[in-house]
């Protein structure tokens, strides 16, 4: 089978600081893969490279066998890679509906002139996008807030808007950046259920960033572990949990149990 996403020998540095060294990664259709590691390990950098936020200087990225390494973000997203953000990034003044409809920007099929003339094609396309958006809003229990500015909604709801915005473009690959950030244990259980459900319903391949082991161990089929930009291990969750290097990265050499990794400020989109 052809991988849906193939990353080869990807490296990146900020100024003199190496944020990512020689990452190679293959993801196959239908997989749910986790990219884990302590804060500052370079996980978000990987997402930013895949989605074209940072220019790629070393290495290549293929999406469905196509080299997307020098594409700009909007093209990559329109081609079928959607993502969410670690710290929610909604269009705050815009209504929830507009936020979600914007996710379909790459799909819209009318010209500027159509819009200015309010042509039939415009009306039909707008109605179609609106219908899709409402279907998603309903799925995520947001219908009630369709016309409310996004900033008025609570944190959990905003996370769901982001998800809806990512899904409306019918992506093949979904990148989730720490979807469990700021959630308590029961919310995390919900989230795990929801991610599974979405993957099934939308026929998705998912790459997920997380630094909390317990989230990914339950969810992912395969894991890749980064530490200081280096790939230190990859394999099934069971293999990873026993991997000595992973234990060291997460727990330190002395093994302070239950500790999260130290938190150097990571560059976050």
């Amino acid at each position: 089978m052809q991988p849906i996403l193939e990353v080869t020998h990807l490296s990146h540095s900020f100024g003199g600081l190496k944020a990512l060294t020689d990452l190679s990664l293959e993801i196959f259709p239908g997989e749910l893969v986790g990219l884990i590691g302590p804060n500052g390990a370079g996980k978000t950098t990987v997402f930013n490279l895949i989605t074209g936020v940072f220019r790629i200087s070393q290495g290549r990225i293929f999406f469905r066998s196509e080299n997307i390494s020098d594409w700009r973000s909007h093209r990559i997203t329109a081609a079928g890679i959607a993502r969410t953000f670690q710290n929610i990034r909604l269009f705050k003044e815009l209504s929830v509906l507009d936020n979600v409809r914007l996710g379909a920007f790459g799909q819209h099929r009318y010209s500027l002139l159509d819009a200015l003339r309010r042509s039939r094609r415009f009306t039909a396309a707008e109605q179609q996008v609106t219908n899709q958006a409402f279907a998603l809003l309903e799925r995520f229990n947001l219908t009630h807030y369709a016309h409310t500015p996004a900033r008025h909604l609570a944190y959990g709801e905003q996370r769901r808007i982001e998800m809806a915005r990512a899904l409306i473009s019918r992506p093949q690959l979904l990148l989730l950046d720490e979807p469990a950030a700021g959630m308590n244990q029961s919310e995390i259980e919900d989230l795990i259920q929801r991610v599974r459900q979405i993957q099934q319903d939308f026929d998705l391949t998912i790459l997920l960033i997380e630094h909390q082991m317990r989230v990914v161990v339950n969810l992912c089929q395969r894991l890749t572990v980064l530490d200081f930009g280096q790939t230190i291990a990859s394999g099934t969750p069971q293999e990873i949990q026993r991997h000595p290097k992973v234990l060291e990265a997460y727990l330190g050499k002395d093994g302070g149990l239950g500790q999260e990794a130290p938190e150097p400020a990571e560059e976050t989109p």
């Binding site: 989605t51 936020v53 909007h74 909604l90 269009f91 815009l94 914007l102 920007f105 819009a115 707008e126």
Partner: peptide
């Protein structure tokens, strides 16, 4: 008015709200 209340107008407003996020929701900001 017709520009603002269209996909283009929403995209233009998205640039104001968060340009990077706009690009990442397939908005061709350029």
């Amino acid at each position: 008015r017709n520009l603002v209340y269209s996909n283009f107008g929403r995209g233009i407003t998205a640039i104001r709200e968060d340009e990077v996020a706009a690009n990442l929701t397939s908005v061709d900001t350029r």
